[in-house]
Amino acid sequence: MRHLLIMILFAALVAIIFGIVGREKPFERFTYGAKIFAEFVGIGLALAWVLYWLPI
């Protein structure tokens, strides 16, 4: 649980900065930041499940 929270926090902070730097209009910033956040968390969770099935 703690690891998931850390990942969400990381994604949120990166998304804020990418949103501000990557777009110029306020609404575009918000949607771009939200997209970055969703991608970070979504891909992170997907990778976690893929790795879960790998025998190590």
Partner: peptide, 13 residues
């Protein structure tokens, strides 16, 4: 404030 605050938060965390 948003940029500096985010960088600072990331650093402290």
């Amino acid at each position: 404030l948003l940029l500096g605050g985010s960088v600072l938060a990331m650093y402290v965390i």
